[in-house]
Every structure is written in C-alpha cells, then in structure tokens.
Design a protein around this nucleic acid. Sequence first.
DNA 1: CAGATCACGCACG
DNA 2: AACGTACGTGATCGAA
Length: 479
Amino acid sequence: GIELKNLNFDGEIASYLLNPSESKYDMLNLLNQYSGINTSGIDADDKNGIAALYVQKLDDIKRNMLTEINKHGMNELFEKIEMPLIEVLSSMECLGFKVDAQILHDIGFELSEEIDKLTGEIYDIAGSEFNINSPKQLGVILFEKLNLPVIKKTKTGYSTDAEVLEELSDKHEIVDKIINYRQLVKLKSTYTDGLISCIGKDGRIHSSFNQTVTATGRISSTEPNLQNIPIKMEQGRRIRKAFVPENDEYVIISGDYSQIELRVLAHISQDKSLINSFVNNEDIHRRTASEVFGIPMDEVTPLQRSRAKAVNFGIIYGQSDYGLSKELKISRKEAKSYIDNYFKRYSGVKDYLDSAILDAKDKGYVTTLMNRIRYIPEINSTNKNVKKFGERLAMNTPIQGSAADIIKIAMVKVYSRIKKEKLKSRLILQVHDELIVEAYKNEIDYMKQLIKSEMENAVKLSVPLVVDINVGNNWYEAK
DNA sequence: CAGATCACGCACG
DNA sequence: AACGTACGTGATCGAA
C-alpha cells in the first residue's frame, strides 16, 4: 500500500557511486564531503542538528555530487539505473517470497535426527564428549588426542576447515563424520531454523536489499540473506522446495544469465577468440580446454574440461599459478603452463587485464560498462601482498561490476514493463545473475518471453547475452 | 557474567 | 596465496 513518488535524487546512492568502498553514507559524512562546510565542530550524536543542517545544505550537497557524477560519466548510471532501482528493490522487499514453514520444519526435523546420530558416533569414536561446533575443542580432539597431522594453522590455532578435513578424511574414520556433521548443522542453523524465524505474519520472507554495500556494484541481501540459499548439494538444495508461490494461481519463474562474467570479459577485452566462441555459441569450457591443451574440441576429456573451467574462473579473479595449482591439486609448474597457454591463445584477455592494472595505477580507479567506479588504493601499497591484492581487484571489479550493471538494467526494465502493462506477475528476487518472478499462471508464456528478452537485451555487447528460463511450482523446481 | 566484537567456518554468485 | 557478499557459533574481553 506504499507508493514511492518523485524519486530523483538520493544522497546516499549518489555518494555510493562516487565512492562505493565507503562503509557509511550517513548525513554527517555527506555534509563533510559534499556540502563545503567544516564539520569538525559537529557533535556526531546530535542527530536532529545534523539532519537539520543536512536539509539546509541539501541543494549544495546535491549540486556538488551531481557535478562529480557528471565528471565521471555516471549520469546515466545514476538517473536511469540506480535511482529507478530504488523502487524496484522496495517493491521486492514489500512483496517478499512466500515460504512453506511446514517444509522447513520437516527438513529441520530430519536434520536434527541425523545430527543427533552423528553426534553420538563422533563422541564414541573420540572417546569423550566435546563441543563439535568449537573449532578449538575439535582441534584438540583431532590433533592432540587422535594425533592426526596438522595441515595448516589459523592465527589462533589449528585449522579445521573443510579443506583440511578433506585431506584428513582417509586418515581416520571420525573425519567424514565431522564433515557431514558440519554440513547438517549449517543447514539446520542457518537455513531451516534461521529462515523459519524470518517468516512474517503474511507467510512471506521480506529480506532487505541493500543498494550501497558492495564495492563492485552488486546488491546485497540481509535479514535474511536470500542470495545464498543452498543449491550445490542436493541435501541443501531441497531447502528451495520451501520457497513457493502465493497460491495455486501462481508459479515461480527464474531467468538466469549464462556465463555472464565471461561474456562481459569477451566484450570489454575484445579478445577475438573469446568473442568468436560466444558468437558461435560454443561450450566455452570445452573450447578453453581445446585451446589450453592444444587438442581438437571433440577430444577434450571430462577432466580437461573441468580443469579448463577452473582456469576460466581463475582468470576472472586474477588467480596466480599457485592458486590454480591448489584448486586443481596439480603442480605449480603445470598450473603455470595452463595459465601461460591460456594467455597465448587469448592474448586480448591478457592485454585487457594488464591495461586494467595500468588504469588503476594511473587514475587510481577502474570502471565498468556503465562507468561505475571503484578506487583501488591498494595497488600503490609498498606491501607486496596488498599490491597484488589491488591488482586482482583491478582485474575483477570491471567484470563483476559490469555484470551487476547489466542485471540492474534488466531489473528496471522487467519491473517497469510489469507495472506499465498492469501484469499480475511480480519480480521478487535477484541473485546476481538470476531474476526470480512470481508469475500469474495466465501470464506464464508472456512472462517467460518478457524476462528472457528484457534480460538478453538489457545492453548490446559484442557477444550475445543468453538467458535460460525455468518454471516450477517452487524455487527448487524452477531450475 | 552482560553484550559487543573477534575468529572461524561456510552458504551463494 | 582466488573476486564479491551474509550469518551462526564459540571464545574473548572486561561493563556495572
């Protein structure tokens, strides 16, 4: 029942665009940075006084911010994307996502039984009771009582993370049970119990979508986070069966971008081979394997394809040979040869990544497709690790940020068409490369087309954008 | 011995 | 040592 009107300037968002790495965009900060007045004498606790001064200086603040936004070519990003997105996110928050509490209770009950059983077995094997949830106590059991080899340490003691446990799994029968226990407890505490406690009186979960949190331009979701609901493992994926439409007049439609970050990389790097791959609609990881391993496409083995997939992901993150070797459990030398071969075959990508680092050094920041900026002060650090980190940020941010620009454009377009055409379907969630619509059954075919076309045509790149559409009676089925 | 904060571990793209 | 997030639990510090 709330309508947002006359949204044309938001100081928090303008300030976020001018520096997305700030942690706060409160009125005192904005006064300090953009009003031109000296704020050193202002009492930070005097909220009323600050608000009054902010309103008084709003014209100056607004003018100064818009001048800066203009200088960076972010007018369109601000006016046509971020400002209109406020209403879209607000609508998504108000609508929420209907959740079947019974399903979550059932899964939770099942998890409890398995957790209890595992707890007993772990105590038996360990020969004593301890808090399995405490990495400190677990470390004592594994590395002092059972004398398992220490794989790595944290700054406070033994590391017991999944990677360590996996390495220890054939050394002692307790380890697989710990791994399993961890997974089940995560599902129970965060997803069954956690989500149940968030269900509103209307039977729906109303997450908050924050527009000024991430340094890259993505949105984030809190209380609860609906952008990290399990999907990778079947056991967790079942949580998605609890995310349902309002009633049997609706279904869930999901539209997800296929390989959006690699497509963005192809576009901004203008690498001939990568563009060609996407234009010809090739299996991108198979093509990469073929190039990196120097073999025909049809001779690529599943192992080679999976390694090439890791190379493709690694490229986007600025991964080192060491990182890739660890990821693939291969020698550093072999990992280096993969990366070297990749850059020989995709030299446009290499040139682009180098130029991103130079940009960050020259200008102090990097930019996305829509001219979104992110300052990279780390790149000038005298600390080698910090500097390397800055270089990875410089390589990754334009890719991740441009993908964020694109899906935001799609969201504004999908939302405004639904509104203009008075459709009963509604946009309820975004998960970085995916939009989720609660669609009215009579509108299913129309909405599938609408979502696909608005997402695929959000921007025009040198490669096609491809969106996969799925429909189901819950989020699990819409895959 | 309250409640905030850190440390760890791990869910997603 | 591979980018971006959120959050639950235990441990720790040290309020009133």
